[in-house]
Design a protein around this nucleic acid. Structure first.
Lengths: 226, 226
DNA sequence: TGTTTATTGGTAGTTTTACTATCGATTCGA
DNA sequence: TCGAATCGATAGTAAAACTACCAATAAACA
């Protein structure tokens, strides 16, 4: 018996489903490693092809360009985060507890789940922190949004907003708070590592507990006022 | 009599001070317009040179590459925002009032100040909203930070953090709140325009008052708890 | 087992980007 | 008006971002 788990992602993101073939999986696996190593700007399909002993043309059979590959990788992470939030809040009654669980997933899903596939989620998380904003900060946002590229992210934010509403139905900005928590997590991890004067927290040896505390203080400070 | 105002910016950002010459000023003026038109990714020195009837090589005499030009433009805006906050809070006693003034500057400095130079601050603000995160989301952050590229931004954040501390000296995350307000403003303007389900606010006909309300609710909600 | 078909490799070629170098003309200030 | 600064014009390179085509091979299927 063999179990194979497939991540369902927007088909328009790729030309050929990379999860279907050996080479496809290698592209996913090593693009994560290479983007982490050299950064998204310096990353090219040619360098990736060299790394996996394949050719540029072969990579182009899977993804139209590197931007779509990036969005694909990010959607993977977001989809996984959403699953994680759903799974871990399933039998929880207390909305506050739910929100705490969601925040811990927002801060770092990779730390809390075992890897099941060819994706190194720990490295993927570093990409999310460093490159995620580039997914939608382009001139093509509107077209890409119409094509559904950001459905995963939006539905993740919606899920978090729903929990926020449960905690305080009268809070006027549930969606804004949800997206802010998502953005803040990445920002403050990045700031702590590169521009520490822009935050008050520290991230020592991948210990993200202070980020979690910050987000909890933020969320509950806004939602629970007496 | 003639008054000429110069914006003091980090000298390492440019090879030759663009504020010193006609061509330099044209580069600043039209790079803002062109980046706004086609986005930073598609923007090249060649296209800029064509637009101003000059040559690629001439543009390269001022800036090493387009990334440094972007940082230069953003620093311009941040420097200006800082000046604006300082100027408008000068004779104000009440810290809460100071923070409100700061927030209104964060949301949109361009709307509140008359243009004095060859820079169209309104268009520059659109660039800040759409492209600002790209300034420091690169593999070279650490080196560039050492070179002082982000001093302007950091000192702006520090100024805002100082006001936050005046409002509530016991708040544990003044710097994080300052940078979050700066990031949030851009994010929610952008979301309202391109990914509206990620926020609760609306931006109609460049009316940013709802962004201001959101940031005020955030800041005071966190700082004033009874 | 043989035959399609899918998948990949290899090569080649194009346009654009991101530069650098050189030289002559112009302009600007002392 | 002399010299320095500035700019325009041209040329050239390496890499990026693709597209096209054909042959080899592996997988599927009958």
């Amino acid at each position: 018996m063999s179990i194979s788990i497939q991540m369902q992602l927007n088909e328009r993101l790729y030309l050929k489903n990379p999860q279907d073939t050996k080479l496809g999986k290698k592209i996913i696996q090593y693009s994560i490693i290479l983007i982490d190593e050299i950064g998204f700007e310096a990353f090219t399909f040619k360098k990736l092809a060299e790394r996996i002993n394949s050719t540029e043309a072969s990579v182009y059979r899977y993804f139209e360009n590197k931007h779509r590959l990036l969005v694909y990788l990010l959607c993977w992470y977001w989809e996984w985060m959403k699953f994680h939030i759903d799974y871990n809040t399933m039998n929880i009654e207390d909305p506050k507890q739910k929100l705490k669980i969601a925040i811990s997933a927002i801060v770092d899903t990779s730390r809390r789940n075992t890897s099941i596939q060819f994706v190194d989620e720990d490295v993927l998380h570093r990409i999310v922190v460093a490159e995620a904003t580039k997914a939608y900060h382009t001139k093509q946002v509107d077209e890409e949004n119409k094509e559904g590229f950001f459905l995963t992210y939006k539905s993740l934010a919606k899920r978090i907003a729903k929990i926020i509403k449960e905690v305080n139905p009268n809070y006027p900005y549930p969606r804004a708070l949800a997206s802010t928590l998502l953005e803040m997590a990445n920002n403050h991890i990045y700031f702590a590592q590169h521009l520490p004067s822009l935050t008050d927290i520290e991230v020592k040896e991948d210990d993200l507990s202070q980020v979690e505390e910050l987000l909890e203080d933020f969320a509950f400070g806004l939602l629970i006022r007496d």
